[in-house]
């Protein structure tokens, strides 16, 4: 069964087949466990490098079909990917340590991309919410915005309100169960990407 939840234009959620192939670079060498004062560092800082040159060079990209490619791979190998973009077969993955500006620098009109995914390595990394918000409100992205990675049902309501309209639930969890969490609250206080604060939404007097 698919792990992908998608919101239709009317907000209806359903589980749909994932037609995109996610491109994952090979694992880095011994550098992959990062430590600081004896503790394993869990989060990459904003602006930190996502993949090494070696990882990028060694990433295999299938010749056909719709591919979802990390931003750093696009940056390094855009010549070979240009035709896929033109064919509408290219989506970009932004990691939470990368910036929306870096993405904007690559695509003057983000809407040439049918899909942008934000990859959250650990669910507790709330940068994904600001990135979603920015892509929708600041950069005017109108196509599919997908949360991928450590995506769990208890954050879905926030993802949705931060502008995401598809959610790839972590492989070991049920997407079916997760559907319910999209509707945890019926009338939130503050505005979200798609709505205004409650006092502008309803008459509370």
């Amino acid at each position: 069964m698919s792990q992908l939840i998608q919101l239709a234009a009317d907000g209806q959620a359903s589980i749909v087949a994932d037609t995109w192939t996610r491109i994952v670079p090979p694992a880095a060498g011994e550098e992959s466990v990062r430590k600081q004062a004896g503790k394993v560092v869990l989060f990459k800082l904003t602006g930190e490098q996502t993949y090494t040159a070696e990882q990028i060079a060694n990433t295999e990209i299938p010749a056909t079909g719709k591919i979802l490619v990390p931003l750093t791979i696009w940056q390094a190998r855009k010549a070979e990917l240009q035709s896929r973009l033109a064919a509408g077969e290219l989506g970009i993955i932004l990691a939470t340590n990368e910036t929306a500006e870096a993405l904007q620098a690559e695509f003057t009109d983000l809407n040439t991309l049918p899909l942008i995914a934000v990859f959250v390595e650990r669910f507790a990394d709330g940068r994904i919410f600001t990135l979603g918000n920015w892509l929708r409100t600041r950069f005017g992205f109108k196509n599919e915005l997908r949360a991928i990675g450590d995506v769990l049902r208890d954050q879905l309501f926030f993802h949705k309100r931060a502008g995401f309209n598809s959610f790839l639930i972590r492989a070991d969890r049920s997407a079916e169960d997760a559907l319910a969490s999209l509707n945890d609250f019926s009338q939130p206080y503050q505005g979200g990407v798609a709505d205004v604060p409650v006092w502008r939404r309803v008459n509370r007097a």
Binding site: F123, G126, F157, K160, Y189, Q190, V198
Partner: peptide
Amino acid sequence: RQWSTFHPEFALLP
């Protein structure tokens, strides 16, 4: 208080 309650963007700050 109302604005900050379940604020969708600031649910998981550093």
